[in-house]
């Protein structure tokens, strides 16, 4: 069973949104379910800090051995930080998707529409 932490929010595209100490900044990554489906991640292409994205816009690409997928911004916002470790250690997405395998920090507005809670995401992936 894929790990779906109760305290995160999710998208139907399998990204998660994690709150930080700064209420305007969220951490974005892909879920444990998603990394399991993708298999071994070999490359994660991320935007530069300062880039802005609309909600649902592609902000990067994730390449696994067997498949390549785009990464979609769960909310509109500006990238304030990216996880540089993924450049050398892309497998962190597999081993610790909610921790060291995070992808970007996004400065977002107050609106958090369209996100799923853990229960709804679990249902979405059939768990």
């Amino acid at each position: 069973m894929a790990d779906i932490p109760k305290d995160l929010q999710y998208t139907t595209d399998h990204e998660y949104v994690k709150a930080t100490a700064d209420p305007a900044v969220v951490i974005v990554g892909i879920t444990d379910f998603a990394q399991g489906e993708l298999g071994d991640v070999v490359y994660v292409e991320l935007p530069r800090p300062g880039a802005t994205f609309d909600a649902h816009a592609a902000f990067g690409t994730i390449e696994a051995v067997k498949a390549v997928s785009e990464l979609f911004a769960p909310l509109a916002g500006e990238v304030v930080d990216v996880n540089g470790r993924l450049d050398g250690e892309p497998a962190l997405v597999n081993t610790d998707p909610y921790g060291d395998g995070w992808m970007i920090k996004l400065r977002v507005g107050a609106a958090r529409a369209g996100l799923l809670d853990a229960a709804a995401y679990a249902k979405h992936v059939g768990q």
Binding site: D13, H14, E15, I30, A34, I62, K66, A67, V68, S69, E70, L71, F72
Partner: peptide
């Protein structure tokens, strides 16, 4: 995230 490679 969404698959752009064909899934079996």
């Amino acid at each position: 995230m969404a698959d752009s490679a064909s899934a079996p």
